[in-house]
Amino acid sequence: MHKITLSHGSGGKLMHQLIDSVFMKELDNKTLNQKKDSAILTIGRKKLAFTTDSYVVKPIFFPGGDIGSMAVYGTVNDLSVCGAKPLFISLGLIIEEGLDKSILEKIIKSIKLAAKRSGVEVVTGDTKVVEKGSCDKIFVNTSGIGEVYYRNLAVENIRPGDSVIVSGGIGEHSISVLSKREGIAFGTEVKSDSAPLNGMINRLLSSSGGVKFMRDPTRGGLATTLNEIVRSRRFGIAVNEEDVPVTRGVRQACELLGFDPLYLACEGRVIVIVSSKSAGKVLSVMRKDPNGKGSRIIGEVCGENKGFVYLNTTSGGRRILEMLSGDQLPRIC
């Protein structure tokens, strides 16, 4: 008897298997096959980006954010990394009966603020209430439409020698949420990195022509996203562990739980692949933005080890970074 388990939703190998074996098998079409963060649609002379994402997070309020703002920023970022200016979003809510109205109001206020901050409008919505136990407090879905203003972003443009940049400390979102979870809870200074990236991405795309590709490392984290980029390509990526920004709070939590920060989700970070010539310029533009202050070059695209991501470890060793295989679980050994 096959059952869907939590691991199928964690953004790693199992999720990709599910996508291929169920969704692609039945729904396959040219746009979907591109497997991008957003679908790129041509309507008349315009190119539009269209994306959707559902948000379930426990707890719904966490240090540095909440389910509402996260749902707005997530969709804004999925559009932005495709070179689109996010314009309109929809809001679908599934609410568990018995939820305090004040909590709902708090979430909607947060959505309002997040939409304002990222310059998008919520233009349509839907609400369903389900029986107690049928969902956990509240689930949020957002879809978004944006106009593509930068058309040269594609994995196919990536070449050996290109630089890989990440826009700040990784794993902060995951750790902030985990720190409040039952059975694991710990005190931490770490706040979620959840933030809109459209402003920064717009500035970096208009500053330099050398940007080849972007992606936000959400579920499965940096390691999984990099693996998605190299998958069945004629290049690999080498990452230098000591250059990867990890704050001490995240590092410490990882020691405690036996986690690898490279596999933790971010909600306000972007991976930028840029020609080495333009890397310095792009980096300085990113660092000027409040959401990109911690940007660093973490590695480069290489011609050898095709299809693989390699990590040069802080200790001077080397290992393959695989795609996440099921969510990381706190461990004692």
Binding site: F186, G187, T188, E189, V190, R248, G249, R251, Q252, A253, E255, L256
Partner: peptide, 9 residues
């Protein structure tokens, strides 16, 4: 209560 790198447990 133990502390390390800003983490408490």
């Amino acid at each position: 209560m133990a502390e390390s790198g800003g983490l408490k447990r």
